[in-house]
Design a protein around this nucleic acid. Sequence first.
DNA 1: TTTCAGGCTTACTTTTTGGTAAGTTATTGA
DNA 2: TCAATAACTTACCAAAAAGTAAGCCTGAAA
Lengths: 121, 121
Amino acid sequence: MIELHEKTYVCPVDVTLSMIGGKWKILILSHLHQFGRRGFSEIRDNLPKVSEKMLMQQLNELRRNDLIDKKIVLLKPYRVEYFLTESGKSLKPLYSFMSTWGIDYLKQHNIDYLKDQQLYK
Amino acid sequence: MIELHEKTYVCPVDVTLSMIGGKWKILILSHLHQFGRRGFSEIRDNLPKVSEKMLMQQLNELRRNDLIDKKIVLLKPYRVEYFLTESGKSLKPLYSFMSTWGIDYLKQHNIDYLKDQQLYK
DNA sequence: TTTCAGGCTTACTTTTTGGTAAGTTATTGA
DNA sequence: TCAATAACTTACCAAAAAGTAAGCCTGAAA
């Protein structure tokens, strides 16, 4: 077993999973990977199945794990931008691979992804 | 949105996640990736945090998604082997990447993974 | 002949997760 | 002045996930 931050992990994969496991995390990361800096509501509107509460929660956890960060771009009115940190960027191969794999899977099930490719707002 | 099997997905990554999301799935897959064909109790003993019930559940879901399969190697006494299907093998880059990333993360936190590398039984 | 291992299944309970919906502060646009 | 938007926060509740523990069948080992 691997000991880290008072928890135990079975293997390195388990360590990685502890950062990006949990609903929505990978989706949020790969969204930021695709679209760069985004405000809260931009992310929300493009992940229409996530509630605001959930999204906030996941964003905060990702920040705690240093995979994303936010900058306050305007104080009044309060406006922010979320973006990938260096650590978050180091996971890019993962986002790319999972996207490609998903597209292949869709192809094999005769769904043409390109025709649907868009943002969801 | 992408429609598939009566569900909707936000993007291809979401499609991929629907197959391998959920606790333990990636861990099980990457275990089979590393060690090849394994009996039920071999997997169980090497993922000591998973209960038998959970493990069975996840194995069945992975089989339904055609990422793993099992062969009955002996009827009496009943012995089986679980292993990656072609589809499961096509995710190998993911297992490798997540393992490497985890090892790097540990290195950055001054934990030498090699000294712990072993099976957990 | 009792015990143990392998490969499960089931019932029951607890914990965790997640949804709904409302509220907050501030600003811009109608 | 009223409504809407951005970025959150909070409370409350339902549903889903997961843990515990026991049990089943078969055969081999002690």
